[in-house]
Nucleic acid binder design. Structure first.
Length: 262
DNA sequence: ATGGCTCTAACATAGAGA
């Protein structure tokens, strides 16, 4: 089966791009972040027309929002709150006789990498800390499970285009990278991107809008992740960052990440 | 140090993204 995670930066604006991805990559399951739409206004008919008849959404007006689109049915759906906030940053589903899938949209963290001065950064660190506690307390490492989504941290040196320049910026600070390492350890996770692409090579999933040449100059970051527990890691088959999607008309600043399981 | 650009809400411009 083929799984995709993608921060679409508004599902309603990105429907044509979703249709193109659906046609070209033929994913079985699509996990979305930043849908930016409340559940009543979600474009159910449009995604059903693409073949995704089983849909779980957790959205809100204007901000955040996650969703799972699937060609096959899933059994159960859960929503967890983090940092005491019901703000549409997590949704999970269970595929029968297969695995649990948890979709996350981790807070971006605001501009200043200091939790004393910036409540958004404190929120981000608290969110990542609670994820690690959850992974440990719930025995995640022993379950057949994947966490996917925009984790908003580029954890390794070659997950950004210039480590020395960016290591003081939110999303790539040593403190955030330590929180990611603790989460990875707590769940016994395999970082699927780095399972297939050596840490010596650049690997990016996000190119900002603000620099018009960011994609052509490859000023990228790896913010979007698929992490799997040991029982699921045995089934990994392939991985691809769909970088071409950044050149499509009206692109999201994030591109889809595809993982194949056998 | 700041802004670049894109999206939403809502109707001019401000907030958020990272």
């Amino acid at each position: 089966m083929r799984l995709v995670t993608w921060n679409v930066n508004s599902i309603r604006i990105r429907l044509d791009n979703l249709a193109r991805l659906s046609s070209e990559a033929r994913p079985d399951v699509v996990c979305l972040q930043e849908t930016k739409v409340d559940d009543a206004s979600f474009p159910y008919d449009e995604v059903r027309d693409l073949g995704y008849h089983h849909v779980a959404v957790r959205g809100q007006k204007g901000y955040n929002g996650v969703a799972v689109l699937s060609r096959q049915p899933f059994e159960a759906e859960h929503r967890l709150d983090w940092w005491g906030q019901d703000d549409s940053r997590h949704l999970s589903v269970r595929f029968p006789n297969a695995f649990e899938l948890h979709v996350f949209y981790v807070p971006s963290g605001g501009p200043t990498p200091d939790p004393e001065k910036n409540e958004k950064f404190a929120h981000k660190l608290g969110f990542l800390t609670e994820m690690a506690q959850w992974a440990r307390n719930e025995g995640i490492a022993g379950r057949k499970l994947a966490i996917v989504g925009d984790l908003n941290v580029a954890p390794l040196d070659n997950d950004v285009w210039n480590h020395q320049r960016i290591k003081r910026q939110v999303g790539h600070t040593p403190l955030e990278c330590e929180h990611m390492a603790a989460l990875k350890d707590a769940g016994g996770f395999t970082d699927v991107g780095r399972h297939f692409v050596p840490a010596e090579e650049f690997l990016f999933t996000w190119w900002g809008y603000r620099h018009p040449q960011s994609f052509t100059k490859n000023y990228g970051w790896r913010l979007d992740h698929v992490w799997v527990t040991p029982p699921l890691a045995r089934h990994l088959k392939a991985h691809k960052v769909e970088s071409d999607a950044r050149t499509w008309p009206r692109p999201s600043d994030h591109v889809p990440v595809t993982v194949d399981f056998q």
